[in-house]
């Protein structure tokens, strides 16, 4: 059943690259993308505004900020703490991450709406226990050029000599593996069933 519905050009099996350590808990979407940038009507420039108010203060670049730090330039993976992406539902936040170059976030846990938004963009979100997040972040700070390999099929993260298991909602994992994270096509398929469901809802036609 899965193969029928594969979208080959959108399949995501592995995310490879170096990682940025930012292990604070409860990082919210106002931090990730300040509200004033949501006044743009396209997502095109969101990558420029990522964590803007943390990275740039009064016109000065905060050199030590992990997103500004030369050591992590070109990173494709972010290591974050628990409850990542809490607060506002703004998709502008994962858009900013993705357009900045991040293809996967390893977090202690994700806020619900944010997790769904990441998946909609093909941005992979995976979970490891918070003690592991602390370990990973420390390791990366000591070894910034470490190459990570997030293997969605095997459900492991490989780095250096290490192999760490991760977790994620199974439906999302399947969506990445089959290219169905872009759900529009599969949602459009079921026209008859959609009509049936609508017909069974009395409130649609209450006068």
């Amino acid at each position: 059943m899965m193969d029928e519905f594969k979208i080959p050009e959108k399949v995501i099996t592995n995310i490879k690259g170096i990682a940025i350590p930012k292990p604070a808990n409860d990082q919210n979407t106002d931090d990730i993308l300040p509200a004033r940038y949501m006044k743009e009507i396209t997502f095109k420039k969101m990558g420029e505004y990522l964590y803007f108010d943390e990275r740039f203060k009064e016109g000065e670049t905060v050199e030590e900020h992990p997103m500004n730090d030369e050591k992590y330039k070109g990173a494709t993976i972010l290591i974050a703490g628990a409850n990542y992406g809490c607060g506002s539902s703004r998709e502008h936040a994962p858009q900013a991450l993705h357009r900045f170059g991040i293809n996967a976030v390893i977090a202690g846990s994700f806020a619900e709406i944010f997790a769904g938004n990441c998946a909609s963009l093909g941005l992979v979100g995976i979970i490891v226990p918070t003690e592991k997040i602390t370990q990973l972040a420390e390791y990366v700070k000591q070894n910034p050029s470490t190459e990570f390999d997030i293997d969605l099929a095997q459900k492991v993260i490989r780095y250096g000599e290490h192999v760490v298991e991760f977790d994620m909602l199974e439906g999302r994992r399947q969506a990445f593996l089959n290219g169905l994270w872009d759900a529009m096509a599969i949602l459009q398929k079921n026209e008859e069933k959609i009509k049936e469901t609508a017909a069974g809802l009395p409130y649609i036609n209450f006068k």
Partner: peptide
């Protein structure tokens, strides 16, 4: 009441009223 069906990923397709 709002379930349309199961998607190939295992997620549910729901109707929005």
């Amino acid at each position: 009441n709002h379930i349309v069906g199961k998607l190939p990923t295992g997620q549910t397709q729901i109707f929005v009223g």
